[in-house]
Design a protein around this nucleic acid. Structure first.
Lengths: 205, 205
DNA sequence: CCATATTTTAATCATTTGATTAAAATATTT
DNA sequence: AAATATTTTAATCAAATGATTAAAATATGG
């Protein structure tokens, strides 16, 4: 009889490979990552990677799906809370994302850059723009601040929040901006961005 | 007698290869681009690529250097104009970058993602953070708006300006946000961002 | 402890890919 | 036009890389 129960995999080998794949893929991207890099990082034989995941592509798909969920999963939930004001949603969004990105700083550059490379885009299904524009948050915006274009405002809110993490390789590496200073500044931004976003919303005319 | 004058190369073959390299590298990144892709795109034999540029790496370095200059070259000039106010510099910056990025939409994602991948960073030399913080613009900011952290403000200004172009693959592809609408919105932002940036600067306390 | 299933490894394939070579084609000079 | 230099191509190489295979090691169940 072949095929026992899956047991509690995800503990040792398979999990180690997946973890190594996360690290290598996020640093080098799909095409820059070699399966041998991943195997070495995981401390296993190269054949094991194919034994557990069939192929580099399959392994990548798992990592990519996981990372996309991590990057996009919480936005909609926050922006669709029915009982929060616009201002509260902005605070929640900023706080959640900055904390999450401090722990996953490579996440946005990885996801956006891989989506950009993929010919027939991964985003066929889940249409982020549509989903965003139908959120409670955008409806609230349209009602309370009708003079502002919701997508334009979202571009700015997302840009202020996410961009520093995308630009970080530029500053961080050469020793100019140490890790801990960057972290402190980002924590500051959890306070600054909501204030700034509110100021933008309150502009008259 | 070998080695004639270089003549007016840069007209046909070499220029075609360089142009093809720009296109393929910007779409797929260094490791995702194959020299055969570039050769095919240029309509030449693969060996010609190595004849003119010695190697994939050398060709890439030329493209990368050119693209980094395109992305960073003008910032400092704009931010160091001695006779412009903070507000004028913000307007100039936004206008220049949005127009430039509309013509080179892949530029930021390409440059930042390749810098991120390169182990020992390309940015060793030119230390962007230091140069930014020593600009006339930052000195003016510090004088006129002492309550605001210049780098925090710059993160937001850059984020509002550049981020939409980085996030575009997400929206643009799936047919949700057509190219011309995106372009119109970005032109709108040339007006919006300076207004919004000024509002941020004018916050009291 | 034996039999069977699962996990791991070493060795090897097959393909891809960057690069080279030698010869052909084309241009340039005299 | 002959001689020489330059550009281009077809064919091929060598290394890198994703994947497979068969056997060994280890775990599991009776």
């Amino acid at each position: 009889m072949a095929k026992k129960i899956q047991k509690d995999k995800d503990l040792s080998t398979e999990a180690r490979i997946r973890e190594a794949a996360r690290k290598v893929f996020l640093k080098k991207g799909y095409s820059g990552a070699r399966t041998r890099d991943i195997a070495e990082e995981a401390g296993i034989n190269l054949a094991l990677l194919n034994y557990y995941f069939r192929s580099k592509e399959k392994l990548f798909e798992q990592v990519m799906l996981e990372k996309m969920q991590k990057l996009f999963g919480q936005v909609l939930i926050i922006l669709n809370q029915p009982d929060n004001s616009v201002e509260e949603k902005i605070e929640n969004f900023t706080a959640y994302y900055i904390e999450m990105l401090l722990e996953n700083p490579d996440l946005p550059l990885f996801v956006l850059s891989e989506i950009h490379k993929s010919a027939e885009n991964i985003t066929h299904e889940f249409q982020p723009q549509k989903i965003l524009l139908e959120s409670v948050f955008v409806k609230q915006l349209a009602k309370s601040y009708p003079h502002i274009h919701p997508l334009q405002f979202l571009f700015s809110l997302l840009g202020m929040t996410i961009f520093p993490f995308i630009a970080r390789p530029l500053l961080n590496s050469s020793g100019t901006l140490p890790q801990d200073i960057f972290q402190m500044m980002m924590k500051q931004r959890e306070v600054l961005i909501p204030k700034w976003a509110d100021a933008i919303l309150k502009i008259k005319e």
